[in-house]
């Protein structure tokens, strides 16, 4: 199996919000992010984007509490 690069890893990290990744994809992603600090940060940042969207949706962004 060819080693995954960051470009592919970021694409899969986005797609896992949209579809179920295959076992092979999940494994390759896991191996890659374990070795790559940039991509493991990227995965965390996508969760932050999700949380930010939820705040916006619910009308509870800051600046008024």
């Amino acid at each position: 199996m060819k080693m995954m690069n960051c470009k592919d890893a970021t694409r899969l990290m986005s797609e896992r919000y949209e579809r179920t990744l295959s076992l092979r994809e999940r494994l390759a992603l896991k191996v890659h992010t374990a070795m790559c600090r940039g991509c493991s940060n990227y995965g965390l940042h996508l969760d932050v984007l999700r949380l930010a969207a939820r705040r916006l949706r619910e009308g509870c962004e800051g600046g008024e509490r």
Partner: peptide, 26 residues
């Protein structure tokens, strides 16, 4: 080769939850 440019490699974000509380962040 598909790896991050050093300048664009995602860094550690400190306390995003605190950022959400600031209007400037939004």
């Amino acid at each position: 080769g598909g790896h991050w440019n050093p300048d664009d490699r995602p860094a550690t974000w400190s306390d995003p939850e605190a950022a959400f509380e600031q209007d400037a962040f939004w």
